[in-house]
Structure formats: C-alpha cells, structure tokens
Design a protein around this nucleic acid. Structure first.
Length: 384
RNA sequence: GCUGGGAUGGCGGAGCGGACAAUCGCACCAGACUGUAAAUCUGGCGGUCGAAAGGCCUACCUAGGUUCGAAUCCUAGUCCCAGCACCA
C-alpha cells in the first residue's frame, strides 16, 4: 500500500465525496487540512489523540496541518454530544486551556520544523462576522439540509425541540472551512454532518471542493467511548503511570481497534494475537502509547510501576498524608464522595489496609510510616 | 394569548399526606474471582456524630401556607413541554 493509501485507510470510517478524489489531489501537491478541537476541557483526551495522530500522518507526508481551536463555537456548545451541556467558557479560561493544549499536542504534531503545524482560533473570524455576513452565509443552506441531521430528528421526536443556536452550530463550524480555505477537514465520524455543512458552504461560496474524512471512533462493543468507561478519561497531560494503567483498563475487545487508531503497527493478524495473549498485547499498546507521548524511559518506568502495583500487588506508597488523625478522616479525601461517611463505608467493606493488613477500625489513629492502601489504586504513606 | 401536562439524587425514572435519605435501571465505588481487564456474584452509593443500635442536619424547582406530620395538599412565582388560537 502506498503512503497516501495508508493514511486514507487506516482508522478511517469514511471519506467524502470519495477517497480516490482525495488521493488524487494529495498526489498533486501539499493540501491544507485541519481538525477542530473543542476547548471546553483543560486537557486533550484519548479521543483527541486519534485525530492528532491522523493529522501528524498528513504532516509527515508534507501537507499543511492546521490545529483549529474552536474557541468561538466552544462557547456555544456542539449539540452532537447533547448529554454534556457545555458550560460557557470565559475567554480567559479558553486561553488557559489552550496554552496547555499546545504543549500536549506538540507531543504528536510538529509545531516547529520545516513544515510546522499552525494553531488557529475560530473566534478570529467568527467574532468578526456581521449579522449581514452571517445571513449571507446562511442563505447558502436550506432548512431541510440542516434538519435532516439524525441528531435533530431524534431530538425533535424525543424531546420535541431543538434550540436555534444548536441548529445554527453546524453553520458556524462549516464556515471555518471557508475562512481557512482548506482542502480537507478531519474529525471523528460523529462529526461528519458538521463537516459536510462546511463542504456545502465551500462549494457555494468559493466553488471549491472540500473533502471530509471521518475517523473511526474508539468505542467498545456497546458503543461507549473508551476512556469514559474507565471512569476517568485518559488525558494527555496525566502522568505516564496513570496513562499506562488507564490503557490497561480497556476491555480486551477494543484492542484491535485501539491498535488501528493509536499506533502504526501492522494490523495483520492482530485479532488472533489479541485473542491469544490479550495481556501481553495490551501491555504492548500501553507501552507504545506512553513511549509516543513521554518517551521510552517513561514507558519503561510506567510499565514497571504497573507490574509492581497491579500484577505483583506490591505498590509503592507515594501519596503523602499526615499522621495523627483517625483513619476515616485521613483517607476521606481519597474516597469517591470525599466524605468521612464514604470512608467509613469503604473501611467496612474491607477495602482499606494498613501495612498489608486489612483494617476495619475507622477510628484507628494513623501513625507515621503507616502504608495505607485505599481500594485498588490509591496508596498513601503517613508522614509527620 | 388560551388550555392542558411537567420540574425528584450524576443520568433515566418511581413515589402523589406518615413506615422516604426516597423502589428500580444505568453510571460509579468496593469485595470475591481473575490475566490488568471483561463477565459473574456480593455489598455500597447525601452529610455528620456513634464501636454499634441509632441520633441529628440538609435535600424532591423557588417562596410562602395548611397539617401533629409535606417530595406528596393549597397559594404565588420561575422554567420546560404539548395542543389550540393569533400572525404569515
């Protein structure tokens, strides 16, 4: 498979209007492409990584990559993920988030070098739009075009309503493509509708063909986004140890997909391998990802840490707490509800041990040097 | 504008005067089992005091009220939904 084909196949759910067409213009010369990211969170997560990796593949082939921060659209809230009613972000928050983002994205994308990726903000052009201009843009689209969207259909049926700002969201997102004059937009396959609106606008306003590439989503058998199911989503700015452990808590069944989306390993026979040695394969995946993000030494260390802590059950106790308080009080900040009641409940369930022995006395006074294990993954050491 | 319906824990959704800190499902946490996981089984899942039994506090949109007693009844308000009307 040639490099272009590889990029357009691996981890790709769909390319519109056609893969061949896109391959053709890519062969001709560098194209401009982008993916938008919603700045509602201070950290990039695993799902974002999928997109970043795809962008970097294009970058390696010499194409011009734009990392678009949807700071304007982020303030409205994308109705795609309706469950998470987005809180409004202040410009200051966005700025803070974005600073951290670049650091994280730079682990995968090259922002320096001879073909640097650009970071742009859609508030730059969206804030500047006048009502007149906006309406002119809207004139290129029809209501049926927008309303045919599954999500809206579903919401109309189930909730009976869709808010106008939500309805207009795809228009704004679509206009990004026009403003940046790109050849290609990349996004998760759940973004295809929004991306296609951009295609329509591009055609209408600039008479230009914009391609759309939807990546597969990293989901488990039930269709839940992986990372969400692990309880705490995996963030690119977490520690290598946590990230490694997070990958390890993936269900086995998503491994082949995870390999496809997150690595460049050959996929031949991966299913069989996973079936035969799921543990080893999962560790390999975790190792590779940590290596990609933090380097080989960290990957080594994270793996060792994981083996010690979870496989050999010989964790290192490194969260410091002060001695002298009752056990329940001491561990309460580390419980799910961060309450003393919760701590007591957990103690009652034999989930806490000190120096290797299960403790059932919540009133026990913690002494200096006590090694306290809370649940599966929290290890405290009592100090003065 | 009119007429109905509704607002309950992270989510969905019961309850419709006392036994309600609130059935149940999802999510989550823990234990057993394991290969880290998944699956399964078990327990838990507002706060606080208590070794425990249990007590106290806060909570069913908001503010009042009725009642020995209110998530449940009444009044007012806020927000949401539906139908109709108006407009086109």
């Amino acid at each position: 498979m040639n490099p272009i084909d590889e990029v357009l196949t691996r981890g790709v759910a769909e390319i519109l209007p056609s893969k061949e067409g896109l391959a053709k213009i890519m062969a001709k010369g560098p194209i401009t492409l982008y993916q938008g990211f919603d700045p509602s969170m201070p950290s990039l997560h695993l799902g974002n990584l999928v997109g970043l990796l795809k962008l970097s593949q294009f970058q390696e082939l010499g194409h011009k990559v734009i990392f678009l921060v949807g700071d304007f659209t982020g303030m409205i809230g994308d109705p795609t993920d309706k469950l998470a009613t987005r809180k409004q972000l202040s410009p200051k928050e966005v700025k803070e988030n974005v600073a951290k983002w670049k650091e994280q994205a730079a682990k995968v994308l090259d922002f320096e070098g001879p073909n640097p990726a650009k970071m742009l903000f859609n508030s730059e052009w969206l804030s500047a739009l006048s009502m007149e201009e906006f309406l002119t843009i809207c004139a290129n689209l029809t209501v049926p075009q927008l309303i045919e969207r599954d999500m809206f259909q579903k919401r109309l049926k189930e909730e009976g309503t869709v808010r106008v700002h939500e309805f207009l969201y795809p228009v704004l997102q679509g206009y990004d493509s026009v403003a940046m004059d790109v050849d290609l937009e990349i996004g998760g396959s759940d973004q295809i509708f929004n991306m296609l609106v951009g295609r329509t606008l591009m055609q209408a306003i600039k008479g230009k063909e914009k391609f759309v590439l939807g990546t597969k989503l990293l989901v488990d058998k039930e269709g839940n986004k992986v990372g969400k199911t692990t309880g705490n989503a995996l963030f690119l700015d977490s520690s290598p140890e946590n990230f490694y452990a997070g990958i390890m808590s993936f269900p086995d069944t998503v491994l082949p997909l995870a390999y496809e989306l997150l690595t460049s390993f050959p996929l031949q026979g991966i299913e069989a391998k996973v079936k035969k040695e799921p543990l080893a394969e999962k560790k390999r995946l975790a190792y590779e990802l940590v290596k990609l993000l933090w380097g080989g030494a960290s990957a080594e260390a994270a793996q060792k840490y994981f083996e010690r802590t979870f496989q050999e059950r010989a964790p290192s106790f490194d969260i410091r707490v002060s001695a002298g308080e009752s056990l329940a009080k001491t561990i309460s900040p580390y419980t799910r509800l961060e309450s003393i009641s919760d701590a007591k409940r957990i103690i009652k369930q034999h989930a806490v041990d000190i120096n290797g022995k299960t403790v059932s006395d919540a009133a026990y006074v913690v002494k200096v040097g006590d090694k306290i294990r809370v649940g599966e993954r929290t290890f405290l050491i009592a100090t003065k």
